[in-house]
Nucleic acid binder design. Sequence first.
DNA 1: CTGTTAGCGCTTTCAT
DNA 2: ATGAAAGCGCTAACAG
Lengths: 363, 363
Amino acid sequence: MRMTTLSTDEIRIFVLGELLVRKMQKRPTLKDVAAYSQVSIISASRALRGLENVSPELRAKVEAAADALGYSRNPIAGSLRGQSSDLVVVLVPAMTNNVFPAVVDGIYAGLSQTGLGVVLGLTGYGIESEERVLRNMLAWSPAGLVLSGSEHTDDTEAMLAEFDGPIVEVMDIDGETERSQVGLSHLEAGRMMADHFLKCGYRRIGYIGAWGEQPLRSRKRRISFEEELRRNGVELVGRFIHPDPSSVSVGAESFDRLIEEHSDLEAIFFANDDLALGAMSNALDRGLSIPDDMAFAGFNGLDVCDVVRPHLTTIVTPRFEVGCLAGKIIADTFRTGENKGPQQRRELALELRQGGTTRLRNA
Amino acid sequence: MRMTTLSTDEIRIFVLGELLVRKMQKRPTLKDVAAYSQVSIISASRALRGLENVSPELRAKVEAAADALGYSRNPIAGSLRGQSSDLVVVLVPAMTNNVFPAVVDGIYAGLSQTGLGVVLGLTGYGIESEERVLRNMLAWSPAGLVLSGSEHTDDTEAMLAEFDGPIVEVMDIDGETERSQVGLSHLEAGRMMADHFLKCGYRRIGYIGAWGEQPLRSRKRRISFEEELRRNGVELVGRFIHPDPSSVSVGAESFDRLIEEHSDLEAIFFANDDLALGAMSNALDRGLSIPDDMAFAGFNGLDVCDVVRPHLTTIVTPRFEVGCLAGKIIADTFRTGENKGPQQRRELALELRQGGTTRLRNA
DNA sequence: CTGTTAGCGCTTTCAT
DNA sequence: ATGAAAGCGCTAACAG
């Protein structure tokens, strides 16, 4: 161990540093780090950011100082100076809906260790509401945007076109757009279930939706479901769209309504698992035998589809994986500083296929 | 309609304004609004913020300008100047867990129309992870903090003590703290279920948990559950804590394990509904009659408890309402600029009782 | 009631 | 390789 003689100046600064460490109420700034390590502020900045033109000694000194002072960068100041913040804005309809929680967890996973934070915006369904929330969020100069769905208002489209940074739309890949999309085709999902019903020999088929078909995605599934049936010579017997948001009880109630008019249905496709589970419970209460008297199918692939008797037929969606890939795309674009082209996106999309695919379960 | 003669200067500014409206790539700043309305920047700021000392004419002029230019405040700049941002940091373990999505929706509801944004931090269970995430988030100088649970590391406690703004802990009110807490007593919940089991006449009782009892809240429930049983002369026959996170399948697997050793249990209390549902499904597969052969009880009060046969006994928790109240407390403190004392908090807490209470369902 | 001055903490020029 | 100066957009603090 080597003793060092400190100059008075160094001592002064050292003492200052110690004081800073001990009783500074406010968080240490770059200025403090610079003073402590006796370099200019900008040098401290460069060193801490790991830029090229910094001597190893200076870097070491600064890093030691930052460490000693417990310095952490103020992202707000950095964001003001630079063009964008370290925040990723994520816009989803709501959390209590069984699809977006997993997506959000996935986004986190995909974004992990990038230093990017997630600002969550709840749009409550409805693209006008989405527009309002987005306008608000844009004020944060986000580093990236994750939206749900591919239907937006014209004003939203304009804002997105103007936005300079990665944009990923999740859970719907049917829209016509130049933007990155990660998710599944709801048109395909609708067809998938129609084909399944037909293969099972069902001919008298019904449909139940909710919330006036807000999230537009459910409407896409219904439309393509109906079209695929029709293409095979089967006309949908009846449908009921409940005005309220999806839930188990709304499913049960909707079942009552639909059965009122069409008591002889062989199978019903639901906009999601919650509705289907509620209806199934109702049907069991009525003494119906499932699937012999009537078959039920939902959408999403919730775990609980496997705990009801009989198991609920559903379409599993790779929600976590979708979020994960979305996060990775944002992170990657952020890191490299440039938007990826379609080719690159396709490569990333391949990863997704390995993680999980949209598929039937309990069929 | 009155024609006005514009001075050359006014024309110049007017034209500048028009240009700004039309082809400005960057978002208009306060400076642009000030130029457009021909007042000083600070006056524009004051007018827009609705401060007192502003003449109606000036205010009108500025508001018109802001409207014409499509101005919206840059919260980043404001945050840098002031001490805190307009962001509320919300720290929860994970979204895919059936309790926090509702809480987050509630927080949004409680925060609505305050202009406060929500930065979501996922701590993935474990208070060390929480500490790390919090340290990171604190860099955003949040306007408020919402944490889940009341157990924290010492360093977290230190950060919280230093934090100058409202802090609310949600979903657990058992901890010893000076901070605002909104949620439920897990000790009470455990007792509640023990009493219910005893009232039903069950004596050979088991318990199943998961994730090594991470979120500590589940452990509290178990402990008080066991204690209440013991207080009534009943000793817990057996328990199994699965190392993996809760899920339907983990519940089913844990059931296997517990039954291996104790096949003659009369009733099992689970750390949550997911585990219970999985186990119930398993038990049905084994040909057990529920609840005659064996009774099951979960925790949370998920909707799906009502769609399984027989309905799953559970404890309903007011998750949305808890989040809502937490949001309101933050919003209120933010608006008035001062932390409320315990008295005030108790008043706010009364609201909660009206919204929803922790109670037994399907008992 | 309105404006001028200064500065939040950081980073992008532009020197040296 | 290092530093000085300027300024991001906004708002307290002080004039007038």
